[in-house]
Amino acid sequence: MARLDEKVRGVFVISVTPFQDDGSLDLDSLDRVTDFYLEAGADGLTVLGMMGEAPKLTGAESRQVIQRVIARAQGKPVVVGVSSPGLAALAEVSHEAMAQGAAGVMIAPPMSLRTDAQILNYYRQACGFLGRDVPVVLQDFPLATTVQISDELLGRLIDDLPQIVMLKHEDWPGLSKISKLRDAEKRGRRRISVLCGNGGVFLPEEVARGADGAMTGFGFPEMLVQVTDLAGRGEMDRAQDLFDAYLPLVRYEQQPGVGLAVRKYVLAKRGAIASAAQRQPGAQLDALARAEVERLLRRQERRLAELG
């Protein structure tokens, strides 16, 4: 399986981790949802991300997920989330994942980091523990981590650590960060791939600013693929029209605390997973929320029909 590099483009879907109603890991549904993402046109997959409930898995379960998805991915690249404040644990999971055939690993900064010097030192040490041959995705998600990576610090991380080949961009507001990064590359800074998160809520604008695609999840991953393709070809009106048909559900998924419950509900409804269950602690949709999602799905279907 090819490893990540700075030229990667497209959509890497953040995979949910399916559980049965009793909270046990559902490996059959993991196979099914992997197939579902690839059939939707995903260029790659990411497992054990924040929306993959990674902290709720045991070490043995994490290894099962990694092995199962890589084996099922039909040669498509798989990125493994390995974020951890402990570098020994981070390196152990990373090396196991790479030995299984992962394309690279994703690292978010620990919440304890506050200064530029602390952030830079953490990534220097992490890359040192991994070794030069392990490609790294830097996850910049301050809404979740509370860690702010400035434009200047991002540039220094890129300059100092050639292992960082991709930015998972989730700063918000953060469109200007993409523009500044691409402008710096025009002035001589090395290029890195930029895939964006946040449930795709800014996807058309991000691609127009120079992002290479998306690394996020949604109950309709085919939308992420189609919008990225259209926007990347400069067909912004078509991209926006398609995106707008899905936007109410995208927005509904952005609710803190229940977004994953919405996504899993939709995926279960579409047959991609057997159960919408999260491993506890985890939110569940009540009857009123489910009715709201159903109304949004009906409206979405009508909008798509109108677009032809």
Results as ranks from 00 to 15, higher is better:
249 L>D: 04
258 V>M: 14
235 E>F: 04
220 F>W: 13
248 P>G: 09
219 G>I: 11
186 K>R: 15
242 L>R: 11
194 V>Y: 04
179 S>Y: 10
175 L>S: 02
269 K>H: 14
257 G>Q: 13
251 R>K: 13
188 G>Y: 04
210 G>N: 07
175 L>V: 06
257 G>R: 14
263 R>N: 13
204 P>A: 08
257 G>W: 13
176 S>I: 02
268 A>H: 07
267 L>G: 08
239 A>F: 04
265 Y>L: 11
226 Q>K: 15
205 E>R: 14
196 C>N: 12
219 G>E: 07
242 L>V: 09
271 G>S: 12
232 G>D: 10
192 I>S: 04
224 L>Y: 06
234 G>P: 12
247 L>E: 09
213 G>C: 03
221 P>F: 12
190 R>L: 04
236 M>G: 04
244 D>F: 00
270 R>Y: 03
252 Y>D: 09
185 E>P: 00
225 V>A: 05
269 K>L: 15
197 G>P: 06
243 F>M: 07
241 D>A: 15
217 G>F: 03
225 V>E: 04
178 I>D: 06
220 F>I: 05
241 D>I: 00
201 V>E: 00
205 E>N: 11
264 K>W: 10
262 V>M: 11
177 K>L: 09
267 L>T: 11
190 R>V: 04
267 L>V: 10
265 Y>E: 15
222 E>M: 00
227 V>H: 02
189 R>H: 13
252 Y>L: 14
202 F>K: 13
235 E>P: 01
218 F>D: 01
180 K>I: 01
204 P>G: 09
249 L>P: 01
245 A>W: 05
221 P>S: 08
241 D>T: 12
262 V>N: 08
231 A>T: 12
177 K>V: 13
245 A>Q: 08
225 V>P: 02
223 M>V: 14
179 S>C: 08
220 F>E: 08
227 V>Q: 03
212 D>C: 05
183 D>C: 02
185 E>A: 11
245 A>E: 08
218 F>V: 01
181 L>I: 06
196 C>A: 11
184 A>L: 03
201 V>K: 07
183 D>F: 07
260 L>A: 05
244 D>W: 01
233 R>I: 05
272 A>Q: 13
240 Q>C: 10
250 V>N: 12
253 E>W: 07
220 F>H: 15
223 M>D: 06
236 M>R: 13
